[in-house]
Design a protein around this nucleic acid. Structure first.
Lengths: 151, 151
DNA sequence: AACAGCAATGATATGATATATCAGCAAGAT
DNA sequence: ATCTTGCTGATATATCATATCATTGCTGTT
């Protein structure tokens, strides 16, 4: 990722936080930047190590969990519940309203692609769920795949 | 669940194992029975406790993990990766070939319903994934829902 | 500038989930 | 009867996550 692009995203993240009343502190910003620069999802402990190594600090994992929770609340990062890892949102700099993210997770290289599936499919899925007597509350899907490079 | 029904399922499980060459030992059978009788998914450690309490034994969690892995390989139980819990397959006694399971997980009472979604939807989903350059390897979906009773 | 209030972070402990490894045992094959 | 293979025991350790209380530091008010 080019530095210019990174700065644009971080600027947008700042706007989002200003708007919501959250504070994008330097630590939070540092964690977000690190997430944006990673090609693969990271566990909270991996984030901790990376942050500490790159900054020479010694933040505890506890703090990282809190910061990741904050970033998740602001929808700047997403948590993949199937792998217990975190990824930066791919659409921070996009102006469109936030859609429910769907993740394609490569089983070989662990790379993740965030896509938006056709609304029609999501609707059909919701209908199926309704037929079974349930109500869908979150249609974030995490799909196990093989990416182009690895296949 | 009626005892007659339970025995039918366990018999079918035995057949499945015979066919695959796996051994449905008494411990494995005990764990499977316990899973079948549970209304909610159980973690490996919860299974361990239940098993030890109901049988007076003291099996280690390690063994339970191994047994759950075995049962999963035989498709007699499924693992929910979003919650790190295990459920007995709802279709052991069915004669139809095994379909890819989809799970509706109630966020309030934790109950789980295993359904089969329309093949058309699964196909469309696969097509979307293909459009993104990925290949779907497992279309097991775990959907966060609210069940009828809880809504 | 001093203060109060609150949000963010530090520090420590503990709980929950999962895997690695090696040893011993049991069932079926020769 | 012995051998091979797969199952289980036992122990250690890695990994993921939350609880709790103390401290720091920003922000708005006076």
């Amino acid at each position: 990722m080019k530095e210019q692009q990174l700065n644009k995203i971080l600027g947008k993240a700042q706007d989002i936080c200003n708007h919501s009343g959250g504070r994008l502190t330097s630590k939070r910003k540092g964690i977000l930047e690190l997430m944006l620069l990673s090609n693969v999802p990271l566990s909270a402990y991996e984030v901790t190590d990376k942050y500490n190594k790159s900054t020479g600090s010694s933040m505890a994992a506890m703090s990282v969990y809190r910061i990741l929770d904050f970033l998740e609340t602001e929808q700047l990062v997403h948590k993949l519940s199937s792998t217990n890892k975190y990824v930066a949102c791919s659409h921070i700099a996009c102006s469109h309203t936030h859609e429910i993210p769907q993740f394609l997770i490569c089983g070989k290289c662990q790379s993740v692609k965030e896509i938006a599936i056709a609304k029609r499919i999501a609707d059909e899925l919701e209908q199926e769920v309704a037929n079974a007597g349930y109500k869908l509350v979150n249609s974030q899907l995490e799909l196990q795949c093989i990416c182009e490079k690895c296949s």
